[in-house]
Simulated scan of single mutants.
Amino acid sequence: MRIAVLGTGSGGRAHAARLLQLGHRVVVGTRDSQVTLGRTEPDFMGIEPFGQWLADYPGIELMTFGEAAAEADLAINGIDGANAVRVLGGIADQLAGKTLMDYAVPFVYNPERAHPWPTPWGVMPALDPVDSDSLGERIQRALPDTKVVKACVTQEQETAVDPGSVGGGDHTIFIAGEHADAKAQVTALLRSYGWRDVLDLGPLVSSRGMEMYTHMHSAIQFALGGARFGIKVVR
Rank of each mutant, 00 (worst) to 15 (best):
Y57L: 13
G66V: 09
V85M: 13
E67C: 05
F65G: 03
I76G: 12
I76Y: 14
F65C: 04
T64Q: 05
M63W: 15
A70W: 04
F65A: 04
L88C: 03
P58I: 06
G66S: 14
A68M: 10
A75M: 07
G89I: 05
F65Y: 14
A75H: 02
E67D: 14
N83P: 04
P58T: 06
G66D: 10
I60A: 08
N77H: 03
F65D: 00
E71F: 10
L62W: 01
Q52M: 15
V85C: 12
I91A: 02
G66R: 09
G89N: 07
I76S: 11
W53H: 09
G78Q: 13
A72T: 09
T64I: 04
I91L: 01
I79S: 08
G90F: 00
V87Y: 11
I79R: 04
E67K: 11
N77L: 03
M63Y: 10
D56P: 00
G89P: 00
F65M: 07
L88D: 02
A68F: 05
E61T: 07
D73E: 14
I79T: 02
A72G: 11
L62H: 00
I76M: 15
A72K: 13
E67T: 14
A82T: 06
G51P: 03
A70Y: 04
L62P: 04
E67I: 09
A68V: 02
Y57P: 05
V85N: 15
G66H: 12
A69N: 09
I79E: 04
G59S: 07
L88E: 00
G59P: 07
A82W: 03
L74D: 01
D80I: 15
R86V: 04
I60P: 06
W53Y: 07
D56Q: 08
L74T: 07
G81S: 08
I60L: 09
G89F: 01
G81P: 07
I79V: 14
D73M: 01
T64M: 02
R86Q: 10
A55E: 06
A70V: 01
A72N: 10
E61Q: 11
I60W: 07
I60N: 08
A75W: 01
D73S: 12
L88W: 00
I79Y: 03
D56A: 15
T64W: 04
L54F: 01
A84S: 14
I91F: 02
D80C: 12
E67V: 06
E71K: 08
A70L: 06
F65E: 05
I91G: 00
W53S: 05
E61H: 01
V87F: 13
V85G: 13
G51M: 14
W53L: 06
I60S: 08
M63A: 13
N77C: 11
D73N: 12
L54I: 07
L74R: 00
M63R: 15
R86H: 07
L54A: 15
A75G: 06
I91V: 06
W53G: 03
A68T: 03
G66A: 11
G66K: 12
L74A: 01
V87E: 12
A69L: 15
A84W: 01
A82Y: 01
A82F: 01
Q52T: 14
N77G: 10
A69R: 10
V87W: 09
